[in-house]
Design a protein around this nucleic acid. Sequence first.
DNA 1: GAGATTATGAATACGCAA
DNA 2: TTGCGTATTCATAATCTC
Length: 590
Amino acid sequence: NGDASGEEDDKIDWDTDDELEIQNFPLSSHSSLSNPGGEAILGDGEASSSTGSCHSKLIQHFVGMGFPEQMVAKAIEENGESNTESILETLLTYSALENSPQRQQPVNANHCSLESDENEFSNTDSWSEDEENTDSSFNKEKTVLSLANMGYTLEEASKAIDKCGPNASIAELTDFIFATQMSTARDASPQQLPNEIKPKPEPIDYDNGMHKRKFFESELCDSKKRREYEESIMYGDNETIRIPKPMIGYGIPTEPCRVFHRRLPDSAIGPPYFYYENVALTPKGVWDTIKRFLYDIEPEFVDSKYFCAAARKRGYVHNLPIVNRFPLLPLPPHTISEAFPLTRRWWPTWDTRTKLNCLQTSIATAKLTDRIRKIVEDLKGEPPLKVQKYVLDECRKWNLVWVGKNKVAPLEPDEVEMLLGFPKNHTRGGGISRTDRYKSLGNSFQVDTVAYHLSVLKDMYPGGINVLSLFSGIGGAEVALHRLGITLKNVVSVEKSEVNRNIVRSWWEQTNQRGNLIDFAFVQQLNGDRLEHLIDSIGGFDLVIGGSPCNNLAGSNRYTRDGLEGKESALFYDYFRILDLVKCIMDKQR
DNA sequence: GAGATTATGAATACGCAA
DNA sequence: TTGCGTATTCATAATCTC
């Protein structure tokens, strides 16, 4: 099916997206893939809309990181154009050789201003004492390279090292750079701030104002709160990304009170469209890093409690349009009572919950539910406040529902499926254990939420789309697209768990999909060559979607909450790697 | 050995009063 | 501004059972 890049793609106007219509803000000065001069480089919008060859852009890409042009050309010659990872490795090797203690050359005389910076900063510092000079210079340049790979300019990196010292950690250095960037940004007027999201002043009067009024009454009635929300989403915080309250992103289907416009950084503009998801409440700095890598797009934080009866606080980074979204119909139950009518009879008046908390990967023990039964049973009538609080705390913590007289219970897997927007029995049978069902479901998308964001694709791709689905899990993205009525022409799905792959395969077959489902077990299998081959054979990807592992980010993890560098969560960088490769390959083919 | 069961806090944000 | 109380969180390791 090689017609994907034909007439349908021509309908998409990547450069004049409606999101671009409002502002004309200057670009961010610290895009993760900007060179020191702030010029656009490989994989960005300017590159994709220019007529230059991919080869020269590839050179520019690495020159932007601070490598000499000649060195880059040699590395590309050795590794070929498609394998950017190998090129980078080769360049780092060259640099290490070049920057041996005997040769104190800057990485790139044109871009690296190490010497002038040292003149500027070294007057009070003692880092460059003679006896340490060679080693510290070597280490410094290694660190500069590391920071350059993270997207900082060589000038920023060098200044940071000079200020913080040669032994400063990467975290300290990035903090310093970020602080410098923010202090520069503070000097600028709000109109000059990059990457802004600016709400249109006039709210749209949906539904004759009924929903709007209700919404403002319930959440944003207070003008101060409204102002705070607007400011938080417009300007964020000067130090780290702040999560807006209420957590509704660019709007929710039930209360679409405002129309937001945003201007994407050029480097973020596709093709392809992409959509990345992870938990909203991460250790500090994680979303800053994610944002920096994903082309400086401001994450859209949304709590699925506005879409269904369970909370699910997630951040989404995507380059999709944000106007004319529509929800899946019928709308799912929005309260516990609507979702589980049989619980009404047993629900005590003092349990005031209307929404469940986040559906996680494990459930309460029988011992706990038994303990609660005994406590409530023995008391007869309304328990004292202290007992009520204990029971309610446990019910909130474990998402317990009242299923009988004085009896609470954890949700059944099929109930979790329903809450998350999957078809009943989606994860049932076919070799998966009950424990693993909870685990897979707990790690999944909330389908209605994601579908709302993806709904804009329906009109754009009437003939269907090609999807690259990374960390597919039980196929939340695929189910969302299918439920939206978007034809799945080709789906390349990457999922480590065999039972999950089987679940998606079964769903694919039982929903009579006419397209092709190609699956891989590991993201590492998708290198440049393989991606190029896939793109050649299907005609390019229209959407790259996925949520990388949250194990090391999630608050529930008491053992290995190690942040984005954690064992599993570091796979985020594979998402970025693959997305960037796809952008490059597709750009080359345009 | 697979699956089920059980026990195991801390990081983070936020509201509010001092 | 600071300190304190409250609320929330796509989990993991050890152990048990069959």
